[in-house]
Structure formats: C-alpha cells, structure tokens
Simulated assay, not measured.
Amino acid sequence: MKAVLKFAVAAAAVPFVILSAGTNAKAQMSMPDACKTEASAMKDMNMSGGGMQMGDMAEHQKATMESMQKMHPAMMQAMMAKDPDVAFVCGMIAHHMGAISMSEVELKYGDDEQAKSMAQKIIDAQKKEIEEMTTWVKDHAK
C-alpha cells in the first residue's frame, strides 16, 4: 500500500494532458451545469484552510474535503515522475484512490439508492484497476 500511495501522486498529470489535448477534449470533459452551480462556492474557499472553515461544513462535506486533501498531494507527487507513462499510471492510481474515498463518503452519508449503487460500482471497479496499475508500476517503473 505504501508503494501504491507513493506512485499514486501522478494523477494530477492527467487533467493537464487531457485539457491540453485540444478543444475537442475540453468539450467532451465539461461539467454539468448543476455541478458548476454547486461548485461555484469553492471559488471563495481555499482548500488549505482559508475561506470556508471545515467546522462550517456538513459531515459529508468534511469527509469529502479530507479525502481530497489526501488525494491532491499524491497526484502532484506522481506528476513529477520523469517517465510520462509512469506519471500517467501513478497519477491514475491516486485519482482512483480519491474516487474510492469519495464513493465511501456517499455510501456513509448518501440517501439515494441509485447514487449509492453507483458509488459501490466505482469502488469495485477502481480497486481492480488500482491492482492492475500497481502491478504495471512494479514491472515498469525504474
């Protein structure tokens, strides 16, 4: 698990690669308007502690923020891998770990059965993919 976390940091490279791939990629990666509306409150919030304080958040928001605060540094560290393939795979490991953490928050705090079902499917799929990517990193990272 320690090796997974160490290599998990590269996921931050993925958004940069996708977004720099051209306008077509950007168009395919747009957030739904309802998500943008909810996310607009984030403009005033510094994730390092400024702006909205964690104490002002609902429990599910605190849990999600805590998981994001763990995921982002891991993604940034992985992005620093010199080999682009290793950076990509390691970054995806961190990204998937973040998705699992967010899905666990949904299972704990969510009420909608369809959303909870999606969360469980994400957990199952991403754990399998993390295992595959971890094996790839062991075989390919130098």
Score class of each variant (00 low, 15 high):
Leu5Gly: 07
Lys6Arg: 13
Lys6Cys: 05
Ala8Arg: 04
Ala8Cys: 10
Ala11Arg: 08
Ala13Tyr: 06
Val14Gln: 08
Phe16Asp: 15
Val17Cys: 12
Ile18Tyr: 05
Ile18Glu: 09
Ile18Thr: 12
Ser20Phe: 06
Ala21Glu: 11
Thr23Asn: 12
Asn24Lys: 07
Ala25Gly: 00
Lys26Leu: 10
Lys26Asp: 05
Ala27His: 04
Gln28Ser: 08
Met29His: 04
Ser30Cys: 01
Pro32Met: 07
Pro32Asp: 11
Asp33Ser: 08
Cys35His: 07
Cys35Gly: 09
Cys35Ile: 10
Thr37Pro: 09
Glu38Ala: 15
Glu38Pro: 02
Ala39His: 10
Ala39Cys: 12
Ala39Tyr: 06
Ala39Ile: 07
Ser40Lys: 10
Ser40Phe: 06
Ser40Met: 11
Ser40Cys: 03
Ala41Gln: 10
Ala41Pro: 04
Met42Tyr: 03
Met42Thr: 05
Met42Leu: 14
Lys43Trp: 10
Asp44Gln: 01
Asp44Met: 00
Asp44Ile: 00
Met47Cys: 02
Gly50Ile: 00
Met52Arg: 02
Asp56Pro: 01
Met57Tyr: 04
Ala58Phe: 08
Glu59Ile: 00
His60Asp: 15
Gln61Lys: 06
Gln61Phe: 02
Lys62Met: 10
Lys62Ala: 04
Thr64Gly: 09
Glu66Asp: 09
Ser67Val: 11
Met68Tyr: 01
Gln69Glu: 06
His72Thr: 10
Pro73Ser: 04
Ala74Ser: 10
Met75Asn: 08
Met76Ala: 15
Ala78Ser: 14
Met79Gly: 13
Ala81Arg: 07
Lys82Phe: 09
Asp83Ile: 09
Asp83Met: 09
Pro84Gln: 02
Met92Glu: 15
Met92Pro: 12
Met92Arg: 13
Ile93Arg: 13
Ala94Lys: 02
Ala94Val: 04
His95Gly: 13
His96Ile: 14
Met97Pro: 02
Met97Asp: 07
Ala99Asp: 14
Met102Thr: 13
Met102His: 07
Met102Pro: 11
Ser103Trp: 12
Glu104Cys: 03
Glu104Pro: 07
Glu104Ile: 05
Val105Gly: 13
